[in-house]
Design a protein around this nucleic acid. Structure first.
Length: 863
DNA sequence: GCAAGGTC
């Protein structure tokens, strides 16, 4: 039996289909899908891995890997290496009693142990145990092995790791490597009839990247985390890609902080082409135009221009210029351009990739991790157009494209042949997908159609108007031939139509307005722009950039979108830039790339490169360690600044956003605690401090963003007028009524906990109470819930009014949930029919839809 | 409790 190992399940299916004479048989080894087929009477099996199946980590000895975490090192096993600079030699472990763990004495402790960690042994540990088990099971029976992972450095490494697993159980079977860069019959057949050897140099180039990333990441992350320990789960990370990315954001913020705005003046004139002088009554021929000097840097010059036009009632049309220009249709989507375009539509790159992954798994779009921007000739463009024309929103445009003759697609600059650019592979309508999923699908489908379309033609008109010797320039843009714009409206400017005018014509001038403005600092990065900048600098890969940015958010180095660094992010970046500058520059990646090329070409070895990098890190750490006090203070100040909301009214110290140890909830506490006991409650959700105090009471305010809600501004003092809510009578107590008594149900808010609820005025006796959502105005209705008799109330939030039964255990809730689930199920069943995919894909598709249904369910209660 | 790179 011949065993073919690919990087992913998808590749295993495709290769089996392309090489097998008959349709391959989908099978499973343990839980891993495999594909069996025959070639010239020989039995073949393909198995897809899940990317890397082994992962390097420090050898799990006493080096930090034991229970208790980042403890220390022994002298034995982790011997002080010769390369360790003398400046890093630490004094002997100073403890009254020796610290013994597993019968071995630790020689260095926490921070002091970091220099040893740099030189700690690394080994490859299993990461995908199930896959490894399946792989070994097949390998035992294999007569020969073909490594058919992706044709790139990581692919060679993944293949080499797989081989090391295989050879543990079958050291003798001959091994070869198939190199292909497209899933076409010719390419795959060619690759398998021209097998080569595994390129061990290329694999060790990849392995050195792994080791270097681990060593630098672990050492610097542990340094930053331990230098000012802020509790478990409060990691401050650093890495070859994430830290230079953070540095980009911080540098931009610094530019903004250093920016000195300059004043300038803008003059705008009002005109009316429907009259020769004076205003006319509200017609469409009125328009405004800026002065031909767009920005007056000098106020006197602006005033002089204003004086020159004051009193004038008419303007002369000095010139009319018309110019048509073409807007070329966009090029096919690759991962980066998709993330950038989706980011402009409000989908973060990380969310975009999550959705793209699930659309791909459900058969709606092609493979989403690509650099390629040129459709391969093997892709039947017309067939794709036909497929998606099932969506009525695209149908007329698709017809038009198909009837116009042969299709021609635009081409981007990057051309690789491993995967096609991202395009739709099945029809979908808003009914088939969740709103965000459809939003992305729609973008991809429309982009695909746009790449097959003609250019749009825009007619630009520039009219120069003369008033009292001053010139004004009116500009209008009109889309005359929509071309691709008919299907791809993203990022399109609105038409600005000017009334028809001819040279020498006199029109009415209705005065001018002079406004003082000031220049703006450079804009912050949006997530989409940052992804593009990372790509330009060679930071990360198409598959990792979005997760790197997400990481910076979770460690709270950055916030909001457009991205701004937190004080902590700036402090970390500054500290590293000052004492360990190598990690803060994209240069480190560029140098690593160069070294990896050297290893791949056989000019250098992995050992030499990694040792070199270790020594470099030792130098950086030797700079960092003597300044630990300084770094510690900077981080502590930054954390305090991020948490600061204002001054304590009782003792004058800082009020800070804090996390309760007990409930894990957030509250505002005084930095003077325990001497000062001032605290304020906070509602659930993301809380940020605001610079301006409450206009009503002068206390600090915060911005609260509850889950799936718009942010709102809140005064931190629950007793502030802005937080007072009148009690609302919402009905009669059903329990008291049964007992023959009359009692009101009242919606009220507890100022101490901020919790809102409905309670019977006779609560102490009857115990009737219902919880209410955290915010939104409460209005009474005269209805009662048909299921439980509780009073129905209307909650009005920014998302509009919404009627609800406040009873948490109302039987109606379950009935509703069941209805929803049934509807989902029906939809999912209907969706599965058009997406004709192989048996292996079905379970995955099912899983994602089931997951989505579950998520929709949990969102339902909304507080 | 570390990174970055694959992929689910």
């Amino acid at each position: 039996m011949k065993l073919v190992v690919t990087e992913k399940n998808d590749a295993a299916t495709k290769i089996a289909t392309l090489l097998g004479v008959k349709k391959p048989k989908a099978d499973k080894v343990y839980s891993t899908p495999v594909y069996r087929f025959e070639v010239d009477g020989e039995e073949w099996v393909t198995i897809g891995l899940r990317g890397h199946i082994l992962e390097p980590d420090f050898t799990p000895t006493l080096i930090y890997k034991k229970r208790g975490g980042w403890r220390g090192v022994t002298a034995e096993g982790e011997a002080i290496p010769a390369q360790l600079p003398a400046s890093l030699a630490r004094p002997p472990f100073k403890k009254k009693k020796p610290f013994i763990e597993d019968g071995v004495e630790l020689k260095a402790w926490k921070m002091d142990a970091l220099p040893y960690l740099i030189y700690a042994p690394i080994e490859k540990l299993p990461k995908e145990k199930e896959i490894i088990r399946s792989l070994k099971n097949l390998a035992k029976k294999a007569d020969s092995i073909v490594i058919a992972t992706d044709f790139d450095r990581e692919g060679e490494l993944i293949g080499s790791d797989a081989l090391s697993c295989i050879q543990e159980v079958n050291p003798t079977a001959p091994v070869s490597r198939a190199r292909y860069s497209a899933f076409t019959k010719e390419e795959i057949t060619h690759a398998f009839s021209n097998l080569v050897e595994l390129d061990t140099n290329l694999a060790s180039a990849g392995a050195s990247r792994q080791d270097i990333d681990l060593i630098w990441g672990a050492v610097l992350t542990r340094y930053l985390t331990l230098v000012k320990f802020a509790g478990y789960g409060n990691v401050r990370s650093s890495g070859r890609v994430q830290t230079p990315t953070l540095a980009l954001i911080v540098a931009r913020e610094r530019e903004r902080l250093a920016f000195i705005p300059e004043d300038y003046w803008v003059i705008k004139g009002a005109f009316d082409a429907g009259a020769t002088a004076g205003p006319t009554a509200g017609d469409e021929l009125a328009f405004t135009a800026p002065h031909s000097t767009a920005r007056f840097k000098d106020e006197a010059a602006a005033k002089a221009a204003m004086a020159a036009v004051s009193g004038a009632a008419s303007a002369t049309v000095a010139a009319v210029e018309k110019r048509t220009r073409k807007q070329q249709p966009p090029v096919p989507f690759n991962t980066t351009s998709l993330m950038a375009a989706a980011s402009a539509e409000g989908l973060s790159p990380a969310r975009t990739m999550r959705i793209a992954e699930s659309l791909y798994m459900d058969g709606y779009i092609s493979y989403p991790r690509v650099d390629n921007t040129v459709y391969p000739s093997s892709l039947d463009l017309a067939e794709v157009v036909k497929t998606i024309s099932g969506n009525p929103a695209y149908a007329p445009y698709c017809q038009q494209l198909l009837s116009a003759g042969e299709l021609h697609a635009t081409r981007g600059k990057k051309e690789t042949t491993d995967h096609p650019p991202i395009y739709p592979t099945a029809k979908a309508t808003p009914d088939d997908l969740a709103p965000a999923d459809y939003k992305l699908y729609n973008l991809i489908a429309r982009r695909f159609l746009a790449t097959l379309s003609d250019a749009a033609v825009v007619e630009g008109t520039k009219v120069t108007l003369e008033v009292g010797g001053e010139h004004f320039a009116a500009k209008g843009d009109v889309l005359v031939t929509p071309g691709y714009r008919a299907i791809y409206p993203y990022g399109m400017k609105k038409d600005e139509q000017l009334p028809a005018m001819s040279e020498g014509q006199q029109i009415a001038f209705n005065g001018a307005e002079c406004t003082k403005k000031h220049t703006e600092p450079p804009a912050r990065y949006s997530q989409g722009k940052l992804i593009q900048e990372m790509e330009k600098l060679g930071l990360g890969t198409k598959s990792t950039r979005h997760s790197i940015i997400e990481r910076l958010y979770t460690v709270k180095y950055i916030q909001n979108d457009p991205i701004e660094p937190s004080q902590l992010g700036m402090a970390v970046c500054d500290a590293l830039d000052k004492f360990a500058p190598h990690i803060t520059h994209p240069q480190m990646t560029a140098e690593l790339e160069e070294e990896m090329d050297n290893i791949a070409e056989g000019r250098n070895t992995k050992d030499a490169v990694v040792t070199n990098s270790r020594n470099l890190l030792s130098e950086q750490l030797a700079n960092l360690l003597p300044h630990s006090e300084e770094v510690k203070d900077a981080l502590a100040d930054a954390v305090a600044a991020d948490a600061y909301v204002g001054k304590c009214p009782k003792c004058g110290k800082d009020l800070q956003i804090r996390v309760s140890q007990k409930t894990r909830g957030m509250f505002i506490g005084c930095a003077g605690w325990p001497d000062c006991d001032v605290t304020y409650p906070l509602p659930k959700g993301k809380v940020e401090s605001l610079p301006d105090p409450c206009p009503t009471c002068g206390m600090p305010q915060v911005k609260v963003t509850a889950f799936r809600s718009k942010p709102r501004t809140l005064c931190i003092d629950p007793n502030c007028e802005t937080n007072k809510e009148p009690d609302v009578v919402v009905g009669e107590c059903p329990k008291c009524a049964e007992a023959g008594k009359k009692a009101k149900l009242i919606a009220q808010k507890n100022p101490r906990t901020l919790k809102r609820f409905i309670r019977c005025e006779n609560y102490d006796e009857c115990g009737v109470g219902y919880p209410l959502p955290q915010y939104g105005a409460i209005t009474a209705t005269d209805e009662v819930c048909e299921h439980c008799g509780a009073p129905m109330v209307i909650v009005t939030t920014t998302r509009g009014p919404w009627k609800l039964c406040p009873n948490f255990s109302c039987p109606g809730k379950e009935i509703e949930a069941e209805k929803k689930a049934a509807a989902k199920e029906a939809k999912a069943a209907a969706k599965k029919a058009p997406a004709k995919k192989t048996a292996a894909k079905k379970p995955a598709a099912k899983k994602t839809t089931a997951k989505k249904a579950a998520a929709a369910k949990t969102e339902e209660p909304a507080e």
